[in-house]
């Protein structure tokens, strides 16, 4: 058996070599193979040293030092898979629509919780201005009536388009992210945001319609709505999946249950964010354009069909080839 000081003196050079490899600041996988092999060997040796130090009862300080070194080496050696650009394509082409189909029931529930309050808001505001003022602030009402009174017959200037696209990115994706995040509170936040957004959207539409400018509003929103409204509901779906995982734990701990669904949840939110980027581009540059109404309605139908086809068909397994391999 060695004394602590003898042990430290004998092993110190190895430890410092490993520390040197970790301190290069580069990912370990970029080092030459011989260095990686050396780091792995040194890491195993440090693990042995740590066990020895613990069982021999060396001082806390030596153990803490070895703990830290082992932890850093472990973190570097068992590193996460490297990032690839192709992963974004996998997300779009496969992982996101599949994740949504796995949670189709929550998505449909989300659609209902958005559309029904939307209809209620529309009908209420259409028949009663007082109803609309219960939901919307007077400033919002004035702003909306002004915004859609003129229409987009002349189109909108390019730099205003850019400014608005920026606003849509900041505001709408931010709303979607909060709609998702608050789902961690047993889903309550997501449900609230869905119903609230449905009511507000419906009330604005009802109010503008009764004011006689419904055509301006609907031709403006019909195309990007396919992406934007769907994506907001998808973000809320992710929140509801989280909230439900907290309630029905399937025998796990509450947070264990949450973690089991976390990958799907992340895929849904990322997919929704990408859809909202598309929506912001359309809303910034296409929706306010001077294109005739018929073309805008046609684009809207095409957009809804494209979104529906994408979400239901993308990433389905191809039929297996006839010839089986030996």
């Amino acid at each position: 058996m060695r004394t602590q000081d003898g042990f430290v003196a004998a092993r110190r050079t190895d430890w410092e070599e490993l520390q040197g490899l970790l301190d290069r600041g580069k990912a370990l996988c970029r080092l030459p193979p011989i260095s990686i092999a050396r780091a792995a060997a040194l890491y195993r040796a440090v693990c042995g040293d740590l066990v020895h130090a613990q069982s021999a009862g060396y001082s806390r300080e030596v153990i803490a030092w070895l703990d830290d070194l082992a932890a850093r080496a472990h973190n570097a050696l068992y590193s996460a898979p490297p990032y690839r650009v192709g992963a974004i394509w996998d997300l779009i082409a496969r992982d996101f629509p599949r994740a949504l189909r796995r949670h189709a029931r929550f998505f449909l529930l989300g659609v209902a919780l958005f559309v029904l309050p939307g209809l209620l808001g529309f009908v209420g505001a259409f028949h009663s201005r007082a109803f609309a003022l219960q939901i919307l602030s007077p400033e919002t009402v004035a702003q909306m009536e002004k915004a859609y009174a003129a229409g987009f017959g002349q189109g909108r200037s390019g730099d205003l388009n850019a400014a608005m696209a920026g606003f849509y990115v900041y505001n709408n994706i931010g709303i979607a992210f909060r709609c998702f995040a608050t789902g961690a509170l047993f889903g309550i936040g997501s449900l609230f945001f869905l119903i609230y957004n449905g009511l507000v959207t419906g009330a604005v539409a009802g109010l503008v319609t009764v004011g006689g400018h419904g055509r301006n509003l609907f031709t403006f929103t019909c195309t990007h709505g396919a992406f934007e409204l769907t994506a907001i509901v998808i973000a809320a779906t992710a929140g509801m999946v989280m909230g439900y995982a907290l309630v029905d734990t399937k025998g796990r701990t509450r947070f264990g249950s949450l973690r089991a669904c976390s990958r799907d949840v992340a895929l849904l939110v990322l997919g929704a964010a990408l859809m909202l980027l598309v929506a912001a581009a359309i809303e910034g540059f296409w929706s306010p354009s001077a294109a005739p109404d018929r073309i805008k309605w046609g684009a809207s139908v095409a957009a809804y069909l494209a979104v529906a086809t994408y979400l239901t068909r993308a990433g389905r397994a191809r039929p297996k080839p006839e010839a089986s391999r030996p």
Partner: peptide, 8 residues
């Protein structure tokens, strides 16, 4: 307007 879009 353009710069406000970029800033957002």
């Amino acid at each position: 307007r353009f710069s406000s879009g970029v800033m957002l």
